[in-house]
């Protein structure tokens, strides 16, 4: 299944070639990348607009990190194009690199340097003059809330603080495009919340963000648009609601009841919008397909059959449902 719900790529009517639009921060077209004989990116396309937080979702080994490394020109690729802010991205595109920040999946800092020294060093790779860096380093430390730890070495920081240091090193030079590769792995809820708020703040200040994660709820919380990829290619893209509309799954209705008879259950199972209905003697669970009156129709049947019930709840489909339906439930490496 491959769906393009919200495309911003223009197609030339004569040649059929896709062209980047003026507001693309990242434009990836037909990228192909192999690791030996294994296909890592299979004609992969990605278009990230300036000023948005774009979520890149996919199971382990789906090609997210490979895609990011190709965008950053760290990895070579066999075919396809990568442009950043409208210009081709190469290993020597130093002007472009100046505008990019990267927060890698693994914490990438020097254990021998303090928090402040680490942030200052990574800033120096972008801003050579010491006096120009001081305010930026102060800002980055304040942004991630590491003021009281600025003279600590990484070995003395907790996992959450390390992640925040990792972020500070990636954003200290005020980049216009920031790539976050699973920045909240192994982080407690408080730190995760702080990180997500910080990312939204960066977006509010004008940065464009490409965000990868396994955590559906945080992607749903902060991302303007989301792409789900698997086996090195895009399988769906759009807003969270657009993605939910793509799958053949509606709300999940749960009814607490003790006296549901077999005839009523059979009636419900026969309804065209009901994908599945199960009763365990205490609880009736109904998985619905899309429909506007699903809950009302269920209630009508319960009333008509004289079934007494207590608590009733209806849950819309989640991004997690979308993800599992699109990528399958088989375990990945």
């Amino acid at each position: 299944m491959s769906t393009q719900a919200n495309t911003h790529v223009n197609t030339d009517e004569n040649t059929g070639e896709k062209t980047r639009t003026a507001h693309d921060a990242i434009f990836v077209d037909n990228l192909v990348k192999h690791y030996g004989t294994m296909l890592a990116l299979d004609h992969f396309n990605l278009h990230v607009h300036q000023g948005e937080i774009f979520g890149l979702l996919g199971p382990n080994g789906s090609g997210k990190t490979t895609a990011i490394n190709c965008i950053l020109a760290l990895l070579s690729h066999e075919s396809g194009t990568v442009s950043v802010f409208g210009r081709p991205m190469t290993p020597t595109s130093y002007d472009l690199k100046r505008k990019i920040g990267m927060v890698p999946q693994n914490v990438a800092v020097f254990n021998e340097l303090t928090v402040r020294e680490n942030i200052d060093f990574f800033c120096s790779l972008y801003i050579p003059k010491n006096r120009d860096r001081k305010a930026l380093v102060d800002d980055a430390i304040a942004f991630v809330g590491l003021e009281e730890f600025s003279h600590y070495r990484p070995a003395k920081l907790s996992g959450g603080l390390l992640r925040r240091l990792n972020i500070a090193c990636g954003i200290v030079h005020k980049p216009e495009l920031i790539l976050f590769d699973e920045p909240t792995v192994a982080v407690d809820p408080q730190s995760r919340n702080a990180i997500l708020e910080g990312i939204q703040h960066l977006r509010d200040e004008g940065a464009t963000i490409l965000y990868t994660s396994h955590y559906m709820e945080e992607v749903e919380q902060i991302c303007t648009r989301i792409m789900i990829m698997d086996h090195g290619r895009q399988i769906a893209q759009g807003t969270a609601n657009q993605l939910k509309d793509m799958i053949d799954m509606g709300e999940r209705i749960t009814v607490d009841t003790l006296d549901l008879d077999a005839q009523t259950l059979h009636t419900m199972q026969a309804l065209p919008f009901v994908a599945q209905a199960d009763f365990n003697g205490k609880e009736l669970k109904i998985a619905c397909r899309h429909g506007n009156r699903n809950l009302a129709d269920i209630l009508d049947i319960l009333h008509a059959s004289g079934t007494n019930f207590g608590h009733l709840s209806s849950q819309p489909p989640t991004l997690n449902d979308v993800f599992l339906e699109l990528t399958g439930k088989a375990l990945r490496d």
């Binding site: 490394n69 950053l72 020109a73 760290l74 290993p91 020597t92 130093y94 002007d95 690199k97 100046r98 990019i100 990267m102 890698p104 693994n106 914490v107 990438a108 800092v109 020097f110 990574f122 790779l125 972008y126 090193c169 990636g170």
Partner: peptide, 20 residues
């Protein structure tokens, strides 16, 4: 080891910086 993208995470981070 801390300057080569293929040798360490720090190296990868340094390699995407604009310092030649």
């Amino acid at each position: 080891s801390t300057a080569q993208a293929n040798l360490s995470a720090v190296g990868a981070r340094r390699s995407i910086a604009p310092l030649p």
